[in-house]
């Protein structure tokens, strides 16, 4: 699936950020994934060790923060969690909800190290 290309693209950015800071290596990458992103956390975790080989993050750990889907309903004012199967309003059934969370696909933090 596409998680390997997601990892490779991410690692190019991670390496660029590490180089900007003059760091020797990356020790941890922290990402945030919601179900609506279409990217599966378990597959990213499996692809990461393959993608990191030969990069500044060759020994880096990966932390994946999983976030739930949240919707706001302008019709009834309801706000709360929803599921991938049902994004309509759980309270009034309106199909005109707005996704307030759960579509995240973010690089949130990296930890880097200098040569000591």
């Amino acid at each position: 699936m596409h998680e390997l290309s997601v990892c490779r693209g991410m690692l190019r950015r991670v390496e660029a950020i590490a180089r900007e800071r003059g760091a020797a290596r990356v020790t941890r990458v922290v990402i945030r994934i919601g179900p609506l992103s279409g990217v599966v956390p378990e597959l990213v975790e499996r692809a990461f060790p393959v993608a990191r080989a030969g990069t500044l993050a060759a020994d880096a750990g990966l932390t994946v923060e999983r976030v739930p889907i949240r919707v706001d309903c302008p019709a009834c004012g309801h706000t709360g969690e929803a599921s991938l199967e049902r994004l309509a309003c759980p309270s009034c059934n309106s199909p005109d909800t707005r996704v307030a969370g759960g579509d995240e696909l973010l690089l949130t933090e990296i930890e880097v190290e200098d040569d000591v």
């Binding site: 991410m10 950015r13 800071r21 020797a24 990402i31 696909l105 973010l106 880097v112 190290e113 040569d115």
Partner: peptide, 17 residues
């Protein structure tokens, strides 16, 4: 002191794309 730094990023994982 060991040269360890935490960098806050918060950008799209697919920023390149």
């Amino acid at each position: 002191p060991g040269g360890h730094e935490s960098v806050h990023v918060l950008e799209g994982l697919l920023a390149e794309n």
